[in-house]
Write a protein that binds this DNA or RNA. Structure first.
Lengths: 135, 135
DNA sequence: CTGGATCCGACAGGATACTG
DNA sequence: CAGTATCCTGTCGGATCCAG
């Protein structure tokens, strides 16, 4: 469980929970970047109930720009969380759905939502206390 | 489980997992910002085994600047994840430790690390496939 | 309908120097 | 030892216009 930073073969590494992570190949970073984005987790949740079309997602999340919608979908697709299917209709339609990996990730996101809901009050309270201390 | 975006009292809201979230007061956003930061989760993990002093954290995470170390600790303290204790010695020493809230959050972070480790390969593979498609 | 291309402001985060 | 202050850069994300 202990964490140690050191050098292995000249590269910086960190040991967390018994695993060795190198700086340039950190598994957690890959995942965190997919959580940290402004729309990523919301998009995962949006697809929780099944496939959705581009325009449906736009309606569901009205305050996302189509630029960020496209970009978010691309990022999630690239990392294998969602699948993109094009139907050669006229005009074309595209739908997005969670992959198996994405559904696995969804359960993590749900836990995140649950934890957030439960502890939201505590966080806000701590923040208020902290902000009141100085000023 | 369904998600609906709409207006309530003129403010944009989103319904996820049966809960109503307003855009300006979204619990998940508060938490995600504490995960998304470059050093936040690493800091939580660093304090998993007990209190640590500022300099100890610097040694543990060599490639963090003291600017970001200070800022990360402040942010986590503000939101109630960690406690900061000053000992009036000469020279002064300060230690940081997880609060109850922080320890609760730690279990989430650990799950994140576990999931990342398990699915890292799949993510990298998907990424390679995606990147190979075009070019 | 599903995007791509471009411009631009805001802000996170790195490097460096200085302080009680 | 434990920070502040300042500068600088890259990237995120919004707005707008264009395209197959």
């Amino acid at each position: 469980m202990n964490k140690i930073a050191g050098k292995v073969d000249g590269e910086q590494v960190i040991v967390v929970m018994g695993r060795v992570f190198s700086r340039s190949d950190c598994p957690v970073r890959d995942v965190i970047e997919n959580i940290g984005g402004k729309w990523n987790t919301l998009m995962i949740l949006a697809l929780a109930d099944g496939p959705m079309r581009f325009s449906a997602l736009r309606r569901l999340i009205p305050d996302i720009s189509q630029r960020m919608l496209t970009q978010t979908l691309r990022d999630l697709q690239r990392d294998g969380y969602i699948d993109r299917t094009v139907f050669p209709t006229q005009p074309p339609s595209v739908d997005y759905r969670l992959t198996v990996l994405g559904q696995s990730f969804l359960s993590l996101v749900k836990q995140l939502v649950d934890w957030s809901s439960e502890n939201h009050g505590a966080i806000r309270a701590a923040r208020d206390v902290y902000d009141a201390r100085d000023v």
